[in-house]
């Protein structure tokens, strides 16, 4: 009984409850058909939100004002870099993946330099960086969809014991980053900075270095997401990452990570990402038109954040 109460009080719990409720609603609307297909589609699509969400979570945890709005542009560029380097050759898959992650890391570093060296607030620095990145992408990719090599396509669809390979990759990345966040000096430093930057600095934490590494980590995850998206959706495109601007922030907040920084939960990201995908599945199954879908999605995100945020304030 105590264990249940403890679990219910966890910040990540709400997102899972939401995901399950929406999933059940979708099954009812579909008349009981296709529950397995829905779950499988949801897991496959949630992967991409989780990976960028992890990056955004680390950045947001740095404290008030920290956010990376360059993720969509970063993803678009990384998808183009990866597909162009792979150029349809199976032998170039690994270099392509590494180049995409590298491109993301460079973007993360540039973001941090804009923030730290030029003292621009992150929200403006990363947003203006995204315009530059997008322009680079358009002139580099010329709006053409370059297709992935056959082996990379096969990898994107591969399943191990029925679980999509991409889901396994995202689970491994999540587990590693959960360890980094909660058990490693780097992760603890990120949370310490988020709780009180000055106190963290006085305690001897190299605040500048940690912030820099955090933005680079976020950029790298954006790059990884770009190459995975290009594999799953069979080609790069400039706007392949567009929906992850709102989604990356929404999953962080809905998942139970504190918007004010200092507190983070990896588990909640999964619940929140599944919740958002199930919401789309439910609305598409319902046959809602585009306006209604956007309206409901917006209202639900506002509602969940209000409920989640209220609960957290009360706990403080």
């Amino acid at each position: 009984m105590n264990a249940i109460r403890r679990a219910a009080a966890q910040p990540w719990m709400l997102s899972f409850v939401g995901a399950v409720l929406v999933f059940v609603a979708a099954i009812i609307i579909a008349g009981g058909h296709g529950a397995g297909g829905m779950a499988s589609a949801a897991a496959s699509l949630a992967v991409f939100t989780v990976i960028v969400g992890l990056g955004q979570m680390f950045v947001v945890t740095l404290g008030p004002g920290n956010v990376d709005l360059s993720l969509p542009a970063n993803i678009g560029l990384a998808s183009a870099v990866a597909m162009k380097i792979m150029a349809g050759h199976n032998g170039m898959i690994l270099p392509g993946i590494l180049a995409a992650i590298g491109s993301g890391m460079v973007i993360g570093l540039v973001n941090y330099l804009l923030i730290a060296a030029l003292r621009i607030p992150p929200i403006i620095a990363t947003l203006s960086a995204s315009f530059i990145i997008q322009t680079v992408d358009i002139s580099y990719g010329r709006g053409l969809q370059v297709k992935p090599p056959p082996a990379f396509e096969a990898m994107s669809d591969a399943r191990i014991l029925g679980v999509p390979l991409l889901v396994l990759i995202a689970l491994i990345v999540s587990a590693l980053l959960a360890v980094v966040l909660h058990k490693q000096v780097f992760g603890r430093s990120v949370m310490a900075i988020g709780q009180n930057q000055r106190a963290a600095w006085l305690a001897g934490i190299a605040v500048g270095r940690i912030r820099c590494l955090t933005y680079i980590l976020c950029g790298a995850l954006g790059g990884l997401d770009g190459v995975l998206l290009a594999g799953y959706f069979r080609g790069s495109s400039v706007d392949i990452g567009d929906e992850y601007l709102l989604a990356s922030i929404a999953v962080v907040v809905i998942g139970g990570t504190s918007v004010g920084g200092g507190q983070a939960t990896v588990l909640g990201l999964w619940g929140a990402a599944l919740f958002l995908v199930f919401l789309q599945i439910m609305l598409n199954t319902l046959g809602a038109d585009a306006g209604m879908r956007l309206l409901i999605t917006g209202l639900v995100i506002i509602g969940v954040i209000t409920v989640a945020g209220g609960g957290r304030r009360a706990r403080r």
Binding site: A26, H33, R234, I281
Partner: peptide, 24 residues
């Protein structure tokens, strides 16, 4: 029997169709 918005974009279409297919 169903309509979704693909926004003339392969990625958006694939996502939208993937979300609606299981119930069709």
């Amino acid at each position: 029997v169903a309509s979704v918005n693909g926004d003339w974009d392969e990625t958006t279409a694939q996502k939208a169709v993937a979300t609606v297919l299981p119930s069709l």
